[in-house]
């Protein structure tokens, strides 16, 4: 028997690629800053509305358009509503929309991309043709068309249902808002995920360790779950992190244009839109939501970049 090999790494604890990536992530200052900001925003979205002294809808017409003060941290708007509470609630809206939309988009994208990559052939070509088609339609146009064509008939239907059943659920038109926003945004957000996952699966499928697993007689199911998926997931995490930020911006953009979440539900987008009308007199009404939106975007982008460097160390710089 040949002599025992020297072990350069013998005394360090074993390091999995995940732990290694985590180590790289927390050494990256920008990524940590991004991560902290995302966590703070997420906390605000989850608990903020419960902690504020004001309801986001409660109006105080005696204190309209007040500047920031100790009573109203970020001041009040033209109806005397507390801007701080509204921004917190807008954070919740942004997170709910971003998470649901990204989850939907990832589900559609991963399913289509993985099947296209794994089975290939005609199936692959049809799915990819469909993906390219979707990508080539201008996003805004698609959302506006969906909203314009579906909103009225849906509201109508809800109203008929309410009158017929008197179920209070049907009176809440906010569900239509969310359904349309989620649906239309997911519809434009999935193609990049499909492309990414397909490329990942294609590249992993040709790695020698997949052939090695086949040579051991392992079944397709084991190969998919233990070999393909864990190795494909890194880039997907990066993409999802960036996607959450993008979804928040999209939501704000649509709300700003009036095709997203509708008042009185607060959204950064419709707050910016309201603030824009009066910014010369009451700049805080525009500044506060705009700054928060900017911070959120920057946070997700730092985190996404950090995750990318951490999970794909060779591709960085």
């Amino acid at each position: 028997m040949s002599s025992a090999p020297l072990l350069a790494v013998a005394d360090d604890p074993p390091v999995s690629l995940w732990r290694d990536a985590w180590g790289r992530l927390i050494r990256n200052r920008l990524a940590v800053a991004g991560l902290v900001m995302v966590l703070v925003l997420a906390f605000a979205a989850a608990f903020g509305p419960m902690l504020t002294p004001y309801d986001f809808l409660s109006q105080n017409l005696d204190a309209r358009n007040a500047g920031p003060s100790l009573v109203h941290l970020f001041g009040t708007d033209d109806l005397g509503r507390d801007v701080f509470s509204r921004v917190l609630y807008g954070t919740r809206t942004a997170f709910v929309v971003a998470i649901v939309v990204t989850a939907l988009a990832v589900t559609i994208g991963v399913t289509l991309g993985a099947t296209a990559g794994f089975f290939g052939g005609l199936f692959d070509r049809i799915i990819m043709w469909f993906t390219d088609m979707t990508m080539s339609v201008p996003n805004l146009l698609l959302v506006v068309v969906i909203n314009a064509s579906l909103k009225a008939p849906l509201s109508q239907w809800m109203e008929t249902q309410y009158l017929a059943t008197l179920n209070p659920f049907f009176r809440e038109t906010i569900w239509i808002d969310f359904l349309l926003v989620f649906g239309s945004m997911a519809l434009i957000a999935w193609p990049p995920y499909a492309r990414l996952v397909r490329a990942q699966v294609l590249s992993i499928r040709s790695r020698p360790y997949i052939t090695a697993a086949r040579a051991l007689g392992l079944t397709n199911r084991i190969i998919l779950t233990r070999y393909v998926v864990p190795n494909a997931i890194g880039p997907l995490i990066v993409s999802v992190s960036a996607g959450l930020g993008t979804a928040m911006v999209l939501e704000s953009a649509f709300s700003f244009l009036g095709v997203g979440v509708n008042p009185p539900t607060p959204s950064w987008g419709n707050m910016i839109s309201d603030g824009l009308r009066v910014w010369q007199h009451y700049p805080h009404l525009l500044a506060v939501p705009a700054i928060v939106l900017g911070l959120a975007t920057v946070a997700f982008s730092f985190l996404g970049d950090g995750l990318n460097d951490a999970l794909n160390p060779r591709g960085s710089k």
Binding site: S2, S3, A4, P5, L6, A8
Partner: peptide, 22 residues
């Protein structure tokens, strides 16, 4: 006839002659 072990990684060079461990 073979040389046991592997060359040292950069940053983990032994003191003295780098080949000594093998």
């Amino acid at each position: 006839s073979s040389i046991g072990g592997t060359p040292p990684e950069p940053g983990r060079r032994p003191a003295g002659c780098p080949f000594a461990p093998r």
